[in-house]
């Protein structure tokens, strides 16, 4: 007669599972917190309260709104703007001639602004902002 050998039930040790879970949480936290960020560097001239108007008139001027681009008074479409800007900048060899003044309508969204500024950077222009100053005048 054969006697069946009793099978031993082997339980995996569960005492360390909470420690393992804790270390996994910390691991994922570290991964999330050190996630590298991507971006775009932008060289801007130091802000001055009053710009030299004579110099400014020689600079290229780009005016943007939410759905239009105007280069030196000439309205352009989105597709032709990079080529037209590169063409204008190609004639300007000196650094101070490559200044591009960017004027934005107050409601221009950031997404549009950054796309236009990237085109200016890629074309080799030196981006300068013209920000409208708010003045309050008391009227009697």
């Amino acid at each position: 007669m054969k006697l069946k050998r009793g099978k031993l039930l082997v339980d995996p040790p569960g005492s360390a599972s909470s420690d393992i879970a804790f270390i996994l949480i910390i691991f994922f936290l570290v991964c999330a917190s050190v996630q590298p960020e991507d971006g775009q560097d932008q060289r801007l001239p130091r802000a001055e309260p009053q710009a030299d108007e004579r110099k400014q008139s020689k600079n290229l001027e780009v005016s943007i709104t939410a759905n239009s681009i105007v280069l030196n008074g000439a309205p352009l479409d989105e597709a032709s703007f990079p080529a037209r800007l590169a063409e204008e900048l190609a004639e300007r060899k000196r650094e101070e001639e490559r200044v591009v003044v960017l004027k934005s309508a107050p409601k221009t969204p950031y997404t549009r602004w950054i796309a236009v500024s990237q085109v200016i950077d890629q074309a080799g222009g030196l981006l300068t902002l013209e920000v409208a100053e708010e003045k309050s005048i008391q009227v009697r």
Partner: peptide
């Protein structure tokens, strides 16, 4: 979606 009237003064301040 931030409008220029809000972010441009910030860029100016950084500059």
């Amino acid at each position: 979606d931030t409008p220029a009237e809000r972010f441009e003064p910030v860029i100016e301040a950084i500059s």
